[in-house]
Simulated assay, not measured.
Amino acid sequence: MSDESRTTTVEAVEADAVAAPRGRDREAYAEIARGLLDRPLPPEYRAEWALHFASEKAIESEVEEERAAAVIFRIGEEWLALSTAVFEEVAEPRRVHTLPHRRNGVVRGIVNVRGELLVCISFATLLGIDKDVAVERRDRSLHFERMVVIGRANGRIAFSVHEVHGIHRYERSALSPVPGTVGQAVSSFTTAVLNWQGRTVGLLDEIRLLDAIDRNIA
């Protein structure tokens, strides 16, 4: 099946499910979700990612090793950064279709991004962030809420953020250790801290993060 045909089919399925009665809507998305959530990881997945990150520094020049780039974003009051190596795109907010019998808190449901159905997760839940703080304070920056898509060897994952700053390039030597005041859940995924515009930004470890996501959607 061509990419164009596959996209058309996915859009047709979603349109039919949304227009259908509530019961049929749940059944349709449950069936689609099972295919997304139950797909097996390729045997070489771990090995490929380990090789990728292990060899990355070996092929960089000495100057390039001192610089890196990450996308900075905000969830609640937490400013975080994730390597550009795993970022795919930033899109407008999308409707999240919840999944029946899926109540672990991390998996929110599925979303349609450019005709592709993606599993949508809650970074706030995964990282233990109080995402409602900004809402309680009527934070005007909620107008900048976005849907972020990150790529993996075996697919893509989406999650919502309250704000996206964009790409930030930094010197590796400027990174600071993670302070003890950072929450336990966040610190377990944070490899270092960036100082940006007077703010403290937690630099997330993409390998640990992707492993945790795999476990939660398995």
Rank of each mutant, 00 (worst) to 15 (best):
R114H: 09
W49C: 01
L37T: 06
I157L: 12
P177Q: 07
T190E: 01
R140N: 01
R172P: 01
A33V: 02
A20G: 14
L82G: 01
P42M: 08
V161F: 10
I167A: 10
E206C: 04
W196H: 13
S176Q: 13
R46S: 07
L142C: 07
E171G: 09
A192C: 01
S5L: 15
V10Y: 06
N154L: 00
L117A: 08
C120W: 00
I75G: 04
F87P: 00
I207K: 00
W49T: 07
R108L: 15
H52L: 08
E171C: 02
G151T: 10
L194F: 04
T181V: 04
A70Q: 01
N154T: 03
E27Q: 06
D214A: 08
G105K: 05
R46P: 01
A212Y: 11
R169L: 03
A30H: 14
A20M: 10
D205E: 11
L36N: 05
R156Y: 04
I150V: 15
S61F: 10
P177D: 12
E60S: 06
L204E: 03
A192S: 15
L142M: 14
A17V: 08
A17P: 13
G105P: 04
V186Q: 15
S122V: 05
R137D: 10
G35M: 11
H168P: 00
T84A: 09
R137N: 15
E206M: 07
Y45T: 12
R208Q: 08
I217V: 12
Q184H: 11
G23V: 10
G105V: 04
E77K: 12
A58C: 01
R137C: 07
L210P: 00
R103W: 13
E64N: 13
E31H: 01
R94E: 14
A85L: 10
A47V: 06
E4W: 02
I72P: 00
H162A: 13
L204V: 05
W79I: 08
V113S: 05
I207E: 08
A47K: 05
V182R: 03
E171K: 12
H52F: 10
D130F: 07
A58M: 14
V164D: 09
V164K: 05
L142W: 09
P42R: 10
P100R: 05
D25R: 14
H101G: 08
S83C: 03
C120V: 02
R172D: 01
R108A: 14
G183F: 06
E31M: 01
I75F: 12
A47D: 08
S141T: 12
A19T: 05
S83T: 15
E206F: 03
H162Y: 05
V107D: 04
I129P: 12
E62R: 15
L118D: 04
A134D: 00
G198V: 02
P93D: 05
F144G: 00
E64F: 03
I217F: 00
T191Q: 12
L210F: 14
A212Q: 07
T181D: 03
R74N: 07
G151Q: 12
R172N: 11
R26V: 04
A12T: 14
I150L: 13
I129G: 04
E92P: 00
P43V: 13
R146H: 08
V90Q: 00
E163T: 03
A17N: 12
V135S: 05
A192Y: 01
S122A: 12
V71F: 06
D38S: 14
E171N: 11
Q184L: 11
L127R: 11
E66F: 05
V148K: 02
I150K: 03
S2F: 02
R74P: 03
E14N: 09
R172Q: 07
L209E: 10
T84H: 02
